[in-house]
Amino acid sequence: MNYGTLKSLNGILGNLQKDAAVIGLTIAGLMIVVYVIIIMFENDTNVVAHQKRWENLRKVFLCAALIAAAGALISFGQQLGSALHP
């Protein structure tokens, strides 16, 4: 069997795990930027629409925080694991 593909996939996953916190923060920032741009293009001045936009923005911030925290947690776990098992 040819394990070259599995080795390269394992290498890619290893690199992603090493940079998990940076990837999480980048994705979180991009989510916020995209949603803010969407808000800028909306012209609805209705009070209900305004409240809905802020509600959705809060959800985006929560999702962004969860993604960033998950990335940081993975990175912390890997550093802790490598410290315990040299």
Score class of each variant (00 low, 15 high):
residue 1 M to T: 06
residue 2 N to T: 04
residue 2 N to K: 03
residue 3 Y to E: 11
residue 3 Y to N: 11
residue 3 Y to I: 07
residue 3 Y to H: 10
residue 3 Y to F: 12
residue 3 Y to G: 14
residue 5 T to F: 06
residue 5 T to L: 14
residue 7 K to H: 03
residue 8 S to M: 04
residue 8 S to D: 07
residue 9 L to W: 05
residue 9 L to G: 00
residue 11 G to T: 01
residue 14 G to P: 01
residue 14 G to R: 02
residue 15 N to L: 13
residue 15 N to C: 04
residue 15 N to M: 10
residue 16 L to C: 04
residue 17 Q to E: 13
residue 17 Q to I: 11
residue 17 Q to C: 06
residue 17 Q to H: 04
residue 18 K to F: 13
residue 18 K to G: 05
residue 18 K to Y: 05
residue 18 K to A: 13
residue 19 D to H: 15
residue 19 D to T: 12
residue 19 D to G: 10
residue 19 D to R: 15
residue 21 A to K: 09
residue 21 A to T: 00
residue 21 A to Q: 10
residue 24 G to R: 04
residue 24 G to F: 00
residue 24 G to Q: 02
residue 25 L to V: 08
residue 25 L to R: 15
residue 26 T to F: 10
residue 27 I to W: 02
residue 27 I to T: 12
residue 27 I to Q: 10
residue 27 I to D: 07
residue 27 I to C: 09
residue 27 I to F: 11
residue 29 G to Y: 01
residue 30 L to W: 07
residue 30 L to C: 06
residue 31 M to L: 15
residue 31 M to F: 11
residue 31 M to D: 09
residue 31 M to N: 10
residue 32 I to Y: 04
residue 32 I to R: 14
residue 32 I to H: 03
residue 32 I to C: 03
residue 33 V to I: 12
residue 34 V to K: 00
residue 35 Y to H: 02
residue 35 Y to R: 02
residue 36 V to T: 00
residue 36 V to Q: 00
residue 36 V to S: 00
residue 36 V to N: 00
residue 37 I to F: 03
residue 39 I to D: 04
residue 39 I to W: 01
residue 39 I to N: 03
residue 39 I to S: 03
residue 39 I to E: 05
residue 40 M to Y: 11
residue 40 M to P: 02
residue 41 F to W: 05
residue 41 F to A: 08
residue 41 F to S: 10
residue 43 N to T: 12
residue 43 N to C: 04
residue 43 N to G: 14
residue 44 D to P: 01
residue 45 T to L: 13
residue 46 N to P: 01
residue 46 N to C: 05
residue 46 N to R: 09
residue 46 N to S: 15
residue 46 N to E: 06
residue 47 V to H: 01
residue 48 V to C: 01
residue 49 A to G: 08
residue 50 H to P: 00
residue 50 H to V: 12
residue 52 K to T: 14
residue 52 K to I: 11
residue 53 R to F: 09
residue 54 W to N: 04
residue 55 E to G: 12
residue 55 E to P: 00
residue 55 E to M: 08
residue 56 N to A: 14
residue 57 L to N: 05
residue 58 R to V: 06
residue 59 K to Y: 08
residue 59 K to M: 15
residue 59 K to G: 14
residue 60 V to K: 01
residue 61 F to S: 00
residue 61 F to T: 01
residue 61 F to P: 00
residue 62 L to Y: 10
residue 62 L to D: 08
residue 63 C to G: 09
residue 64 A to V: 02
residue 64 A to K: 04
residue 65 A to Q: 01
residue 65 A to N: 09
residue 66 L to C: 08
residue 68 A to I: 06
residue 68 A to N: 04
residue 68 A to M: 08
residue 69 A to M: 13
residue 70 A to E: 01
residue 70 A to D: 01
residue 71 G to V: 06
residue 72 A to W: 13
residue 72 A to Q: 14
residue 72 A to E: 13
residue 73 L to Q: 09
residue 73 L to T: 13
residue 74 I to C: 05
residue 75 S to W: 11
residue 76 F to M: 13
residue 76 F to I: 12
residue 76 F to H: 07
residue 77 G to Y: 03
residue 77 G to K: 09
residue 77 G to C: 07
residue 78 Q to I: 13
residue 78 Q to T: 14
residue 79 Q to M: 13
residue 79 Q to W: 11
residue 80 L to D: 10
residue 80 L to V: 15
residue 81 G to Q: 05
residue 81 G to E: 06
residue 82 S to F: 04
residue 84 L to N: 04
residue 85 H to T: 14
residue 85 H to F: 15
residue 86 P to E: 11
residue 86 P to D: 12
residue 86 P to Y: 07
